[in-house]
Design a protein around this nucleic acid. Structure first.
Lengths: 237, 237
DNA sequence: CGCCGGTTTGAAGGCGGTCAATGGGCGTGG
DNA sequence: CCACGCCCATTGACCGCCTTCAAACCGGCG
């Protein structure tokens, strides 16, 4: 099953280089909610581009707890790390029904040989994901639950507002899934959300999020609105 | 000030590709203990290779707390992300007196144009650092202080044992610095270390660490001894 | 209607933080 | 040589954020 390859690759590299198009055979695949895209410690078969839906990267601990390390929204590429290292270290699964474009590893290998601009764009994507995880790690280590939650909402709403400019954003995470991201118990996530709602900062209804008081939320979460824009500056071309 | 460039670049890419040598002008620089190598939100000037000493990457929060995100030991390369994105998002400073080799960004830009193998090796380095941070983030989110500390000791001792095969490893972190890494208070770090010493798992004396019961420490820290070896497997060449 | 996943609320307890004081090693200066 | 100061390690008491446990509630769906 193939789809328009030019579109896919231009999405892949959109954001600062303009559109870079390349002809490459990809497979599109549908994943149901909860479906697993990548199993940890499996040799990777492809790198994936999110066309529709939400996904998460997560790992489990011995005592049954789980920690989510990244959220992927439409336009994101995931498991570049596994492609480079030859082994996945996290699981990736769908938070909603998804549409993915899969670029097989063999294809990608020859692609980065021929297209230096594309290789560089993908490299930069990994760097951005790394910067995102760094910021998130600070929150897990040093911020209280309320600030951590506010920070997450700032980040997600910022990333989503690029593609969906409305202020009523899709936000399909259950509170249990939120707890996995935030490193909290589901019960406490509930209490924190209650508080944020109670202070009129956000509203959440049937899978949609509305940020009512963004400045206050940014202040609460110690959020740096610029760090998502990194990668639009200097650097190799 | 220049040094033997071939040596530097072969260290840069040692580990799975064998030695890749390239002629490139670098500067060596010495940094005193506590010295700052990279300031956040500054445009990066170079990418650095650790020749001697320890360094850390860290960020501060508004309320004065700090979180360390990575430790660098001899052989490590740092601030590849800043090079790619054109802006540093973390500070890097020396935990001990250090010797660094600095590869200027301009040099590196032309280098990755000419040497695909080198570009790929550096890309893979970033992927490995990302995998390391992922594993660490899980600990901050989901592991108790004791397990988190045990995990850190496992990771550091594993990384150090590659270069210094003795079981008496250099470990120059103060308990305050450890607290920044572990996301704990200095006081609690002390108590955890006491417990680990009390159970005969480790010994720490004047900047040196000795792991006495590695299997138990691995179990305690929920440590996966294989994840540091990722990157020796399949993947693009 | 009854099950089921998700949300909400309450109560009790523990992990780790904060505050505070003590002690030790070391370099500096008297 | 000793005194002083500084940083780091250590220890104790108390406090609070968050977890755990438990139960009720709610909407969707077979």
């Amino acid at each position: 099953m193939t789809t328009d390859p030019g579109v896919i690759i231009s999405i892949l590299t959109a954001g600062r280089d303009g559109a870079i198009a390349a002809s490459v055979s990809t497979r599109t695949l549908s994943v149901p909610r909860g479906g697993q895209v990548i199993r940890s410690s499996k040799t990777p078969e492809a790198v994936y581009l999110v066309c529709q839906g939400f996904a998460k990267a997560h790992v489990g601990t011995v005592d049954g707890a789980r920690q989510t390390l990244a959220l992927y929204v439409p336009g994101d590429v995931f498991d570049l790390g596994a492609f480079l290292l030859g082994q996945a270290s996290v699981e990736t699964s769908a938070l909603t029904p998804m549409q993915l474009a899969a670029v097989p590893c063999s294809t990608l290998r020859s692609l980065i040989d021929e297209r230096r601009d594309l290789a560089l764009a993908l490299w930069r994507r990994l760097a951005m994901q790394h910067a995102l995880l760094q910021e998130w790690t600070v929150g897990l280590g040093r911020r209280l639950a309320l600030a951590r939650t506010a920070h997450l909402i700032c980040e997600v709403s910022e990333r989503l507002s690029v593609t969906s400019p409305s202020d009523d954003l899709p936000f399909p995470l259950t509170q249990v899934e939120l707890a996995d991201v935030l490193g909290l118990s589901p019960v406490h996530v509930n209490r924190v959300l209650q508080q944020l709602k109670g202070e009129g900062l956000i509203e959440i209804r049937n899978g949609h999020l509305r940020v009512c008081n963004r400045p206050r939320l940014i202040e609460l979460g110690d959020f740096d609105p610029t760090y998502l824009r990194r990668g639009d500056g200097e650097g190799p071309r």
